[in-house]
Simulated scan of single mutants.
Amino acid sequence: MHIVIGLIIAFVIVAIFARRKRGMRLCRWRADRTGDRGALRKYRCAACGAEAFTASDGPPQGCKSHLPKV
């Protein structure tokens, strides 16, 4: 009986954390070095097609698909 209760609690905890980061896991950023502009690095999302520039190391944080296209 204790095992069943433990599994239910573990499932609920995993579901809460998975739902919390849901918006971020949809985007898969890929570097597009041909579009770099000086210190800005261009990234394109393989999932939604959004494009973003960042000056920091690594890809952008979060989905940018809701932003207007330029």
Rank of each mutant, 00 (worst) to 15 (best):
M1D: 12
M1R: 15
H2C: 07
H2V: 04
I3T: 15
I3M: 05
V4F: 06
V4G: 07
I5S: 08
I5Y: 11
I5L: 12
I5Q: 05
L7G: 09
I8M: 06
I9W: 01
F11C: 08
F11Q: 06
I13M: 00
I13A: 04
I13N: 03
V14I: 01
V14S: 05
A15T: 15
I16K: 11
I16P: 02
I16V: 01
F17C: 11
F17N: 08
A18T: 01
A18P: 09
A18M: 06
A18D: 00
R19D: 08
R20H: 07
R20N: 05
R20P: 12
G23M: 10
G23R: 14
R25T: 08
R25Q: 14
L26R: 11
L26T: 05
C27R: 03
C27E: 00
W29C: 00
W29R: 07
W29Y: 01
R30V: 10
D32W: 07
T34L: 13
T34Q: 11
G35E: 14
D36S: 15
D36G: 12
R37N: 14
G38R: 03
G38P: 07
A39Q: 14
L40C: 14
R41Y: 12
K42F: 14
Y43K: 00
Y43D: 04
R44I: 01
C45M: 00
C45T: 04
A46D: 03
A47V: 01
A47T: 02
A47F: 06
A47Q: 04
G49K: 01
G49T: 09
E51H: 02
A52I: 00
A52S: 08
F53P: 14
T54Q: 07
S56I: 06
D57I: 09
P59Q: 05
P59A: 05
P60D: 00
Q61S: 04
Q61N: 03
G62Y: 15
K64W: 12
K64G: 02
S65C: 13
S65D: 09
H66P: 12
K69H: 08
V70Q: 13
V70E: 13
